[in-house]
């Protein structure tokens, strides 16, 4: 098993899955920005944050930082409703969105690498300033621009796993 190869596959799979799942939800195409490795161990999110932690040959967490208007757009597009503010239903739907992105991506990686990555349930947060901090991890960030705002796909991998 080549862990570096698996890591690259994980990242590309997460990005591709993210684009696919978003497209299925909204029928909009997403253009991912470049992958950057963060120097700091924290990321600040305003809007909605979904965390999906995982264990296995790679362990860490996926964090989606979703602008409020993007969340509303995804929710309204799927349900046909016209919700204008963040409510519990929107938060639940973003949890499910995070679950689908990570679940589908991990399925691809597990099937290819027998990596035994397993997901914990998603947790959802909303607030104007949330700082998420992880220790002994490497953090990677990709920003996706949508017509409604941005989504950040932020992944933290435990250091020794890479």
């Amino acid at each position: 098993m080549n862990d570096q190869r698996m890591f690259k596959k994980v990242m590309t799979t997460f990005v591709q899955t993210f684009v696919d799942v978003y497209k299925q939800f909204t029928d909009e195409d997403l253009q991912p920005g470049g992958l950057e490795k963060l120097e700091e161990n924290s990321i600040s999110i305003a809007g909605i944050a979904v965390i999906v932690p995982f264990t296995g040959k790679l362990s860490g967490r996926v964090l989606l930082g979703i602008d409020k208007d993007v969340a509303l757009s995804i929710y309204n597009s799927i349900t046909g409703e016209s919700v204008e503010d963040i409510c519990d239903d929107v938060l639940f739907s973003m949890g499910e969105f995070g679950n689908m992105v990570t679940g589908n991506a991990v399925t691809v990686v597990n099937n290819e690498f027998k990596s035994g990555i397993r997901l914990a349930p998603p947790s959802v947060f909303s607030g104007d300033e949330m700082n998420f901090v992880n220790f002994k991890v490497n953090i990677y960030n990709i920003v996706f621009k949508t017509p409604h705002g941005v989504i950040r796909l932020n992944t933290a991998f435990k250091e020794e796993a890479e």
Partner: peptide, 8 residues
Amino acid sequence: MMSAMGDD
């Protein structure tokens, strides 16, 4: 069956 975790 419906799942996001459709692994083998």
